[in-house]
Design a binder for these strands. Structure first.
Lengths: 391, 391
DNA sequence: GTCGTATGTTAGTAACTCAAACATACTAAG
DNA sequence: CTTAGTATGTTTGAGTTACTAACATACGAC
């Protein structure tokens, strides 16, 4: 490791400290939290300011002593764009370093295997619009959320059942856009991006994220980092076996978790075709059976999968999100019952089951964050670039 | 991060490069593999040599060009001691940096809840003997392997069913020994130490380690590092549920993996009391039932647990060890059958099922390695210490 | 107004690594 | 036996980086 790497590391350290702080921070505070000395922090902060990554505000008095100079992530200088491709719409969101929305747009269209080019064009249109509305801010990255399995290199969508997509080389298509020349483009699974929103709320924690959307997905977060796995789909436990030889899942196997608790499966069981809210769906199911049994089946199946996962990973926090959020309180007792029965950690600590305070579109927001995130890890690259531009 | 941390990092980088190399390496080779420059490597190597961590041998010609000066981990200068506490014996092993055995001893005694002080005394005796036989080598650490659950801080043994131990503050007991003053003492679960032996064989790989001993345990290895979890028992999947409401496990729950495939459970089923080899045990079981069914039950139960774990962690390699080693080839087809049915990764890559080339006492060797390992992460501390001694 | 306090800056120093040239020691070929 | 070629390892001087110690700054409190 070279000296320049050391600088890069410290630069990133300071940048992240500024980002993670809830309120504006002083240089002195940064020095304390990063373990660096005041002169070092001052120098690094100066670089970040001239590069347009950090903003200085008017001094604020803090009781006695010299007033601090508040530092914040720069607003409106940097633009990260998130795209979300869903079955019936494509959304686009632009944020800056401060995490504020600069601009957003949505187009409604039914995305299928037959209109991939149209979808790509829609993405391009939305990108241009959002970019134009974001003003002066420089685009630093684009990240696309897709509800499906992405190849480990992030190049293409291997399969997205809801979109009926198979092997779509989305990254290449988007990178081919002239407007995106030189801009990094990422493609990532929607749930893995949704979890970023949750991570932002509880930085550096370890937990299991379970999200019910059409299927059931999830992610494992260890000390604020999403576990990747060999193919980049660790935590996708919709096809964990909860009942060997049990109900037929749409993946063709038997006894998968998804066959018991996914929105899709529940809707099939209710015999409904149209989209309804989860509450209505449970209501519908309760007509033929006891509501407690419907909820109990969901809770206990989920509990078994969760318990096994908690055992293997030795975690003690579960966050429920997506359509599981609204019924979280209702199913929690059943999950707890099963987890307490099977999870070893439950003997020592109480397993915490929480619901996620989901935004309207966590995947979209997560994608926008992911688009900005490389900048925070390597501010030096950006500084070098902005320096060369001003030459 | 400060400049001194940079040096510490690079020192450790070079030290580990020397350790991991199968054959003695030259400074030039180290420069290439560590991405450092030749002068830097030379300086760092010099420090490691004077500190007694690395050894220089006579120049060796490598075809054309100046002959290289071979570098190796120093032999007989540093002593790491591993202890293994088992139900019927306590073993002790001393190794040096080169990984060679300097000395080893075993005492046979039945370790129970009633004779903890005796066990500690036996440890002390063994430690003294091994240390005496190791000659000049300086003791740098002690690590104790215990077949049970260890508290997250490594202070005490929470429970060790085979030893009938509960809440034994082993670390404190050992640290109280005058001979161990200033020497770091670790206590760790035996399986988590066994896996270190496997990691040494396949550095930086990711895999699942499944070890059959009295129970069934395991560990998760991600890029050469053992996953810890909140309490330090991630990967302990003996109590994963493979059949909800199934066979009664000795933990009091139902359907645990251990109830189907542990040596303990198999022996109970065979109605045997004495210890027999796994082959004999399977033979015995095959008298009442078909051998294929015995093996099949083991393989399929294990397969289900493995498949669920692989799904959650997105891994594609499984290493079978302990008593599962000898029957690995026999049970592998059944594991594969179940895994192929349930593991998603099996659709893309073939899941690799391997057997560990187990040493006689992997936990003991792992413990000895773990005792030395902190030195490799922080050679600077040791250098400072050895410098102050020679003053 | 003076003191106490906390922030941020300046100047000088120490530590680390790097690039370039050099010294070394061998093989291979004429 | 000499010369060329090659790879290793060292020396030298320079360029980073961050640190320590002292200082300047700007406020509140008495």
């Amino acid at each position: 490791m070279q000296s320049t790497h050391l600088r890069e590391h410290n630069l990133s350290l300071v940048m992240r400290a500024v980002m993670n702080a809830a309120d504006p921070v002083s240089r002195a505070t940064l020095a304390r939290s990063t373990q660096l000395t005041k002169p070092t922090v001052s120098k690094l902060v100066e670089e970040l300011i001239t590069a347009g990554l950090v903003e200085e505000h008017a001094p604020v008095s803090q009781g006695s002593g010299r007033p601090m100079v508040p530092l914040q992530p720069a607003q409106h200088t940097v633009l990260g764009i998130g795209l979300e491709i869903a079955a019936e719409h494509i959304s686009c969101l632009g944020i800056d370093l401060a995490g504020g929305e600069l601009s957003s747009r949505t187009e409604y269209l039914e995305v299928t295997a037959d209109n991939v080019p149209e979808a790509v064009q829609a993405c391009a249109r939305l990108l241009d619009q959002v970019r134009a509305e974001a003003g002066e801010a420089t685009l630093v990255g684009v990240c696309v959320a897709v509800p499906g399995r992405i190849s480990p290199d992030g190049e293409s969508v291997l399969s997205a059942p809801n979109l009926d997509w198979d092997d779509v080389p989305l990254m290449r298509e988007l990178q081919a856009m002239p407007a995106l020349e030189g801009v990094p483009v990422l493609v990532q699974n929607d749930i893995r991006l949704s979890v970023l929103t949750e991570i932002a709320r509880r930085p550096d924690e370890s937990f299991m994220y379970v999200r019910g959307s059409t299927g059931v997905g999830g992610a494992i977060v260890l000390e604020g980092k999403v576990l990747e796995g060999v193919h980049g789909w660790a935590g996708e436990f919709g096809h964990t076996v909860v009942e060997p030889g049990g109900a037929l899942c749409r993946c063709g196997r038997r006894g998968c978790l998804e066959a018991y608790v996914s929105y899709h499966a529940l809707r099939e069981r209710a015999g409904l075709r149209r989209d309804v809210l989860i509450d209505e769906l449970v209501e519908e199911l309760s007509r033929s059976t006891d509501r407690a049994e419907v909820i109990g089946t969901i809770g206990r199946s989920l509990g078994l999968a969760v318990a096994n996962a908690l055992n293997i990973l030795d975690l003690s926090t579960v966050v429920l999100s997506g359509y599981l959020g609204p019924i979280a309180e209702e199913i929690a007792p059943f999950i707890r019952e099963t987890v307490d029965l099977h999870a070893l950690a439950a003997e020592v600590d109480e397993i915490v089951i929480e619901r996620s305070d989901d935004l309207a579109a966590p995947a979209l927001w997560g994608a926008a964050r992911a688009a900005v995130s490389p900048l925070l890890d390597h501010p030096g690259d950006w500084i070098a670039r902005s320096a060369s531009l001003s030459d």
